[in-house]
Nucleic acid binder design. Structure first.
Lengths: 240, 240
DNA sequence: AAGAGTATATGTACTTCTTACACATTGTGT
DNA sequence: ACACAATGTGTAAGAAGTACATATACTCTT
C-alpha cells in the first residue's frame, strides 16, 4: 500500500481498482456419526446447477473481514461463540464466473449437539468430508486447504473440543482425532499423550447408556477454551 | 459466495459492494550482517509522514492475487524467481486511513548477493527486523505475523536457502537460523540435525579468504529448490 | 619462524519422546 | 451365567534431542 495516496483512492483509480469484490467463505466442520462433516449449500448459480458450495457472502463495506465470517456463521447456524480461523485467501482471476471476486477462507468448528437448527435452512446439508468430490467455484480446493490446516492445528492446539459436547469420553475424543486425521491411533498411546498434554479434567463421572463397560467422562480444562474471538495471543505450544 | 448471483454482481449491489479495495503487501526478507533484514519504504501518506511501510500495491482487476505480489517484488527488486508465501489477510475496517482496503500479506526470501539494485529505488532501505519498532498502517502487525510464520516454516521446510548464496558453509547456515529464530544453537547438534535432514550436498570445496581455518562448502540439494511459484504440493515434512 | 588467535570438525552419554504390544475388568444383553 | 464389547493399564525397545571437550587448520602478528 505504500504507493497508494489518499488522492488515488478518491479519484480516477476509483472505478478501476474498486472492481474487485471481496467475499468470505466458511468451511463449517462438525462431528457426527464418527465422521468429520462439512456444511454445504446447494449452489444457486446456474453455472453450478446441482452442485454444492461452501457458505459465504460478500464482505460489507462497513464490517471487518473477520466479522463478515462471523456473520455468515451466525446467519446460517444461529451460533455465536464459534471457533473460527482464517486460512487462506483465494484470488485467481477466474475463480468466480460472474466477476472478479477474491475470497478469504475460514474454517470453524461447531458442536452439532448445541445446534438444533440444521433444518431451519433447508438448502443446507452436512457432508462427510471424505466423500465430497466436487464443489462449485474453487470450493473443493478451499475445503482441502482448510482440512489440511485443521489437521496440522489439532496436533498442536486444543481446538477439537469445539466439535464435542461439554462432557466426553477418551474414546469419543480418539474417534474424533481419527476422523480428522484419517488414521487409526493406538489406544494406550493416545491416552498417554492426551493425558500428558494436561488439557483435560477428569469429571469423576461415567458414561451412561452404553452397551458395554462405561468410560470415564472428561471436559476441557476451562482455561483452554477457545471458542469465540479470533487472534489468539501467547499460544501455548501444546506438543512441546 | 453461495448467495451471490450473477445479477447481484451487475446491479444495485455493485456500487455498494465494490467499495472495498484489495491490496497485497510484501514482507521482503534478506540476510545480511548476520541479521534478518526487511525491506521498507518511506510512507508517502501524510498521515504516516516519516514512517516506514511495507511494499505493497493495489491488486489490478486483471491479475491474480499471487501475481500481484510477484509484480510488487519484480517492480521493487527486479528479481524474478523469488520464494513467496501468502500468510494472512488483514481486513479491519480502519486499517487504512484513506478508505476501505483489505490487504493480503506475503513474505518473500531473497538473496542480497544476487541483487545489486538496492539503490535504484532510493526510498527503499533494509532494516534489521529486531529493530523495527513502528510502521505505517498495521504493517508492524503484518511484519510480526510473517516473521512468526517464517520461524515456524524454517523448522520444517528447506526454505532458508533462498536467503543464502549458492555456496555456503555450515557456520553461515547456522548463523542464519540463529538470526531468524532469535536463539543460539549448539554447533554440534545443529550440524548433526542438518546433515540428517539430507538437504545438503557437500561440494568438496573450502571457504577462501577467511581469517581462520576454512570450512567446507555446501549447496542445497537441487531437487529441493523452491524459489519460483507458490503452492507447493506434496510437501516433504522435513522435521519428520 | 614461532606463537597466539579463531573457527572447524567430530563422538558419546543422558534424557526424553515415540512406538509396539496383551490381559484383566466392568458393564449390557440374552 | 455366559457371551459380548469396550475400558483401563505398563513396559521394553528404538528414535530423537540435549549437553558437552579436544584436536586440527588456517591467518595474523611479532
Amino acid at each position: 500500500m505504500a504507493k497508494l495516496k489518499s488522492a488515488a483512492l478518491e479519484k480516477s483509480s476509483h472505478l478501476e481498482y474498486f472492481n474487485i469484490a471481496v467475499s468470505v467463505d466458511c468451511v463449517i466442520f462438525a462431528y457426527a456419526e464418527k465422521a468429520l462433516k462439512v456444511l454445504l449449500i446447494q449452489s444457486d448459480l446456474e453455472e453450478f446447477a446441482g452442485m454444492y458450495s461452501l457458505l459465504g457472502d460478500l464482505v460489507r463495506p462497513d464490517e471487518d473481514l473477520d466479522e463478515a465470517s462471523y456473520r455468515v456463521l451466525r446467519e446460517r447456524t444461529d451460533l455465536h461463540d464459534v471457533y473460527l480461523e482464517q486460512v487462506h485467501t483465494f484470488g485467481n482471476l477466474n475463480r468466480h464466473p460472474s466477476g472478479r471476486v477474491i475470497t478469504t477462507a475460514y474454517y470453524s468448528l461447531i458442536n452439532l449437539k448445541n445446534n438444533k437448527l440444521q433444518l431451519t435452512h433447508n438448502e443446507l446439508s452436512w457432508h462427510d468430508v471424505n466423500k465430497v468430490r466436487k464443489l462449485a467455484f474453487d470450493h473443493k480446493q478451499i475445503l482441502d486447504t482448510c482440512l489440511q490446516r485443521l489437521r496440522e492445528k489439532v496436533l498442536e492446539q486444543p481446538i477439537v473440543f469445539n466439535l464435542l459436547p461439554e462432557k466426553f469420553s477418551l474414546r469419543e475424543l480418539q474417534d474424533l482425532y481419527e476422523a480428522i486425521l484419517g488414521v487409526e491411533l493406538d489406544r494406550r498411546n493416545f491416552r498417554k499423550r492426551i493425558i500428558l498434554k494436561d488439557w483435560l479434567i477428569d469429571l469423576n463421572e461415567m458414561e451412561v447408556d452404553v452397551p458395554h463397560r462405561p468410560g470415564k467422562l472428561y471436559k476441557l480444562r476451562p482455561s483452554l477454551k477457545r471458542n469465540g474471538k479470533l487472534s489468539v495471543k501467547s499460544e501455548q505450544k501444546l506438543t512441546a
